[in-house]
Simulated scan of single mutants.
Amino acid sequence: MPQDLITQLPRLDALFDQYSERFGKQQTPYRNHVYRLINLVAAQKTLDPQEWEALEIAAFFHDAGIWLAGTFDYLQPSARLAEHYLEEHQLGHCRTLVRAMILNHHKISRYDKDRNNLVEVFRRADWIDVSLGVIRFGVPMARVRLIKHAFPNAGFHRLLLKLSGQQLLSQPWRPLPMLKR
């Protein structure tokens, strides 16, 4: 497990700069969530350069459809936004992995029997963060606390509850995105 936290990634920071107006005051909560995810993935798996590339892009776009596509039914829109970015930047070699990470990050059951499959590791990282560390998949609580301290919640979970409530009230027949897969 790496001792140092990942606090800056140029591609990721450039994406947040590019879309800062679209995120508005919710950028810090989302940015911190994304950096928590990246650090939680790094706490579970050593990544090769291509996996790092895919992780940065998938982490940024995994929930971005909420803001960039204006919908709480955001899995497919988030995947499409990521695919557009990949195409624009000649990163098509990451397409399958990035798409799988985005579309399966809310999956309740395992994505793959291989615990080191990056899609599975990313899925677990999101569950660790969304559960506030109650579910840890073997990541030590001390590491979770360190990551949460470096990247505070800043209202991210409150925002998710608010958006979930709005969706339930306005469209009770539509399942929440985390319950679709």
Rank of each mutant, 00 (worst) to 15 (best):
I108D: 15
Q18W: 07
N117T: 01
R110D: 15
T28A: 10
A82Y: 05
L103A: 12
H62N: 13
A58R: 09
L86K: 04
L159C: 03
W67H: 13
E21K: 05
V134A: 10
L146I: 03
A58I: 00
P49I: 02
V34F: 09
V144T: 07
Q44C: 03
E83Q: 14
L163M: 08
V41F: 05
K180M: 12
A154T: 10
L176R: 13
H106W: 05
G165K: 08
R145V: 11
A64S: 09
Q50C: 06
R174M: 14
H84S: 14
W127Y: 15
R31W: 02
L97F: 00
H157W: 01
D63L: 06
G133W: 03
T46H: 00
L91F: 04
G24S: 05
S170P: 00
A58F: 10
I108T: 15
N104W: 06
S20R: 01
P49E: 10
E83K: 07
L163W: 10
Q3L: 05
V130L: 02
C94V: 01
A154I: 07
R31V: 07
V121H: 00
S164N: 11
F23Q: 10
A69S: 09
P175E: 09
S78Q: 01
P177I: 10
L68D: 00
L97Y: 09
Q166M: 10
I135R: 00
H149T: 11
